[in-house]
Design a protein around this nucleic acid. Sequence first.
DNA 1: ACAAAAAATGCAATCGATTGTAAATAACTC
DNA 2: GAGTTATTTACAATCGATTGCATTTTTTGT
Lengths: 334, 334
Amino acid sequence: MSQIKTMKELADLAGVTTGTVSRALSDSPLISPKTRERLQALAREHGFKPNLLARNLRTQRTGAIGVLIPLGHEKGQHISDPFFITMLGYLADELTERGYDLLLSRVIPEDENWLDQYVGSGKIDGLIIIGQSDQSETLDEVAARYRPMVVWGGHAPGQAHCTVGSDNILGGEIAAQHLIDRGCQRIAFFGDPQALEIAQRLEGCKRALARAGLSDNLTVLPAHLVAEAAHPDIAGFLGSVSQRPQGIFAASDVIAMSALRALAEYGLAVPGDVKVVGYDGLAIGEQTVPRLTSISQDLRLGATTMVDLLLRRIAGEDTGSVVLDPKLIVRMSS
Amino acid sequence: MSQIKTMKELADLAGVTTGTVSRALSDSPLISPKTRERLQALAREHGFKPNLLARNLRTQRTGAIGVLIPLGHEKGQHISDPFFITMLGYLADELTERGYDLLLSRVIPEDENWLDQYVGSGKIDGLIIIGQSDQSETLDEVAARYRPMVVWGGHAPGQAHCTVGSDNILGGEIAAQHLIDRGCQRIAFFGDPQALEIAQRLEGCKRALARAGLSDNLTVLPAHLVAEAAHPDIAGFLGSVSQRPQGIFAASDVIAMSALRALAEYGLAVPGDVKVVGYDGLAIGEQTVPRLTSISQDLRLGATTMVDLLLRRIAGEDTGSVVLDPKLIVRMSS
DNA sequence: ACAAAAAATGCAATCGATTGTAAATAACTC
DNA sequence: GAGTTATTTACAATCGATTGCATTTTTTGT
């Protein structure tokens, strides 16, 4: 039982040419059922698998989608961040279901060419980028010449690249309104508005407060996105602030979890003393004590949408950006 | 500014052949510094990136490592499971640092050929499999003819495939001993021993109890691995068991988190009424209330080790399995 | 049984790079 | 400046499949 590695070997063995083998294995109608069956059986018997590289080179299609996580403004953020990971899982599910592989890379955008490594390398048919970080201009520039690219993140007017994301302003508004409805007068916003999405969430928050005439009662704490880094930020804040906030709106669930922990350490009851709302609607919010109220982004739908748009772009279609509706999930922390 | 897509185009533009271009771009000593510089400048100027598929086809090396997650015995388990995701993040870090890409696929082992899709497809240089699930025999069989493969999981005598994992028996022993040291007399084990690793952890747990003469005080609850599925298991258990356990040893941190939540819902204080120890040492254990005591597997070291072994196997070396030491991390839940 | 139409297979170019070898040019030696 | 040796560069085969077109084989009609 020799190991058949190439079509040539199989063809020689069967006394035909590689062309015939190729057609037989791909169920081409140009081949007689008899030889097709014979060759397929032979291939199966010898465990022959065609070399996909060669196939892809010839067909100019790789069957792989690149997924990039640019870690721009927040150094130290890791692929294992719950948000990334959740999104990645959904993307993997969606892509594998559609027959695509997923080529994962973590990129630290140092030179401005970080994107060109992937674009046009021939390894991927399209590109999904999770989070714009602070690379919005780079993305715009690349989008001008590379069509099959979709970005997760906030949509801002004038953006050239195709984005999918939730309406962060609306989400922020809903979260703040919810806290107000629960009787909070003083509200703290935890998150660094340097990132576009977070700035938008803060904007929405401000609108809701303005409407309720509470604009002066907002404190903004530019907490880190990474859980380990966020905790001291928050602990420090709770320890120092004299007028304790009655409501906390955290710009991400990860930050909210750090907040919950810090509050517990200070002996403050949630939601009794302080109410907390997160953002993202991650599954880990179900596991916190108390379970976390959050603005859900429906990441599964987001992933599906991104893949959808991307495949249409690969097919040549031109697509606009999609803005999803954020939704309030009331659990036990508010 | 025409778009240069291939070496041929660039070569024509420069008035040389593709061979020269190829050597110039790869810093071959066979090329004069002058033309090398000229061609590199030209390539940069036109944003030329060589097609990696073609290169890989020629060099018979893809620069990509496949990472597979077989979801065997536990249906519904998702890539976004915190353990997978954490491991995946470390692997991505480690691999990208060494210049490899990471080709992610979720596989549901339905036909027995699920592995052959990847082995010998030419798309990857090697394979890392996270978790054996219940596919140990398949893995052994493939390992016999496909060398560059490393599996995360428990090592059992007689296994033919190369594994990296922690000493689950020892880990189980340490966890149980810790609970005993803290004064627990009745202990519950949460986890389904159908999976090899979990069976080993239970085994270690039993040993520690036997040594303390508490063998009769163990209850085993075969909880699910998935958080959503585990919670009802656990809630049901806590509601029904008459002799409440004083210590809970959860076979994974995810299960432990469900346990913490269920305990909180029953108004039981942790660690006052019940002490909880998890397994895996995941970062989310830092975020629970109270922070979770756990047996740490040092997944970062595990990932590094797997990549190490894999690269050595790719280079032709033959390597044995590695068993890592589990370590107790005492936090607030015990 | 013979010509024409249809079906099946073979042939060879192609995808875009890499690389051994041959040829052309440059650099020395005396 | 002729003869040699070093450098550079061009040529062409190669990786392993796919596919348009030419050719052979089979089928069909009369």
